[in-house]
Amino acid sequence: MSLSIKSIKSLAPLLDRVLIQRAKVVEKTASGLFLPSAANSTPPPEGIVIAVGPGAPGRDGKIVPVSVKEGDRVMLPGFGGAQVKVGEEEYQIFRDMEIIAKLNE
C-alpha cells in the first residue's frame, strides 16, 4: 500500500512510529563503474530519520519515548513499513521496535 501526499511537513507520525527516508540506490561505484539494475533490486538497508512520534504507552501506562531522533542514520529491515510518496521522493513509516540499529558516525 502506498500513500501520496503533497508536503512532508503535513505528515506527523503517531505513537512509536518513525518516518524514514531510505538511502538512495547506488547506481555507480566510487571508481565510476555503473551497476546493472538487477544488482539494485533490493533497497539499501539504511535511511535517515525525518520525524518521530511522541512514543507509545508502556505496561504501566507511562509514555515510553522513541529510541531515535530526527537526523539519525538507522539500519532497517529489508521489508515492512508503510510507504509514503511525496512528489518524487519516497519515505517509509516504521514502528520504533522494527528499526534494527542506530548507525553512529
Results as ranks from 00 to 15, higher is better:
E90D: 08
V68M: 06
K85Y: 00
E46F: 15
S37I: 12
V84A: 07
S67A: 13
L35R: 06
M75N: 02
P57S: 04
G81M: 07
P36F: 02
A38D: 11
G71K: 06
R59N: 09
P36N: 12
G78H: 02
A82I: 09
P57G: 00
V68Q: 07
G81Q: 09
V84F: 13
V52L: 07
M75Y: 01
Q83R: 15
E70I: 13
S67E: 08
K85N: 06
P57H: 01
E70Q: 15
V49L: 11
G78W: 00
L33W: 11
F34K: 11
P36K: 12
K69Q: 13
G78L: 11
E70V: 15
P65Y: 02
L33V: 13
D72P: 03
G71A: 05
V66C: 11
A56P: 01
A56H: 03
E90K: 14
L76V: 06
G71D: 04
F34Q: 08
E46C: 15
P65V: 05
L33I: 10
V64Q: 10
S41T: 12
T42C: 07
G32L: 01
L35F: 05
P45T: 05
S67L: 02
V52K: 11
G81P: 12
G80T: 05
F34P: 00
G71Q: 03
A82Y: 04
M75W: 04
E89A: 15
F34R: 12
P77A: 07
R73L: 10
L35C: 08
E88R: 14
V84L: 14
R73S: 09
P77S: 08
S31I: 06
G55I: 02
K69N: 08
V64P: 01
Y91V: 04
Q83V: 14
K85F: 04
R59L: 14
P54S: 10
E90L: 12
P45D: 15
T29C: 11
